[in-house]
Design a protein around this nucleic acid. Sequence first.
DNA 1: GCTGTTATATAACGGCGTTATGGGATACTT
DNA 2: AAGTATCCCATAACGCCGTTATATAACAGC
Lengths: 216, 216
Amino acid sequence: MSPRPADPAVRSELVDTAARLLAEEGRKGFTVRRLAAEVGVSTMAVYTHFGSMEEVRQAVRREGFARLGERLDAVRPTDDPVADLAASGVAYITTGLDHPQLYREMFPDRPIGQRATGLDGGAGAAAGGDEAFGRLVGGVRRCVDAGRFEDVGELGARGWAVQLWTMWHGMVSLAVAGLMPVEHVSLHYTDMSWRLFVGYGDDRVSARASLQEALF
Amino acid sequence: MSPRPADPAVRSELVDTAARLLAEEGRKGFTVRRLAAEVGVSTMAVYTHFGSMEEVRQAVRREGFARLGERLDAVRPTDDPVADLAASGVAYITTGLDHPQLYREMFPDRPIGQRATGLDGGAGAAAGGDEAFGRLVGGVRRCVDAGRFEDVGELGARGWAVQLWTMWHGMVSLAVAGLMPVEHVSLHYTDMSWRLFVGYGDDRVSARASLQEALF
DNA sequence: GCTGTTATATAACGGCGTTATGGGATACTT
DNA sequence: AAGTATCCCATAACGCCGTTATATAACAGC
């Protein structure tokens, strides 16, 4: 009285193919029929492994954040947490620019009536995004613990993390939307990180030196 | 031998209704049939005034930037350009948060193969976005001319403008996507503006005072 | 008033996400 | 080993979508 088990390989292949389709052909090429045909199954296979196309998108979202996490993990921590943080930003932005359609899918529209919860608020959060955000908070906290960041402010390390993410995400979004040329991203990232991390005073030489090496 | 003229009132009504539909019901309710029915015409009317649904979206985009421009213009310049700039940011972010779906539509996906041009690069640019960006550059330049911004850097006033836009857009995007609770936006905006405008040193007291009044 | 041109309505076409139907594979029961 | 319950998945359909072919109606110039 047991059922026929679903092939888990089919599911992961569907997710991978979905991510590839989205990256290569954009939203327009990302359809059930196309996805099923690409994997070599019928459209119903999609509906057995996922309840709807929206859940496929959610799985792709998770996959996107997982890949982002890998890219961030590839930044091996050194003994300079500020430089590490800057390098993480480079990894983040590079990831977004490499796969713009996939990146965009990771930040979906909320249904209209729905209240905005968020990473910074604790609960809810995007699929897999909280993990990446936690990584970022850890990176900031390392800087604070090392005494490299003063004036953490009332928002604390989480506040720093949110604002870093704001900068990163803003840059990726503007570049992807075509409002900032990609060849200027590096310069703006360096310049803006400088302002955020170092400020205008002549103090904080250590952070300045770290940035000089880490920024791309 | 002259043709029957198209009613220009229908066109503008189509744009307004499209913007309203998008704002109220999101992408899902934004269809030709729905739009035509709402205005009280047939679907063909849409195709006489616009070549395709994509052009309707482009018109909505322009409308969105026009409304954003109005909101920015509503910030009357005072004798304190730094405070004005901060207030413009409040107006920008508020506009985005008020109509998230419309805001999101203003930054569309580029077709996959297409090169990223951008406001900061001169040519191309989004529909109507260049005007809003020009306004922002003007606001920054007023600060620079008044001697309120030092260290403009190699990117100049345009660089400042791009980075301000990056912050604004990043905050709106994260909040709209649900990754930053909207009730935290104000605090983060104040905090981050502080860091960008003022920095860590105890100098630049004038900018600090301006922010204290203008930030929401 | 006739004629050429265009705006709009009706209806169709292919493709979309989703679902109903049905056959066949699987794993437990006896 | 045969029976059977269970679920995977392919086929085909449904109602939608954006777009377009066709036909009719409204206008401007002769």
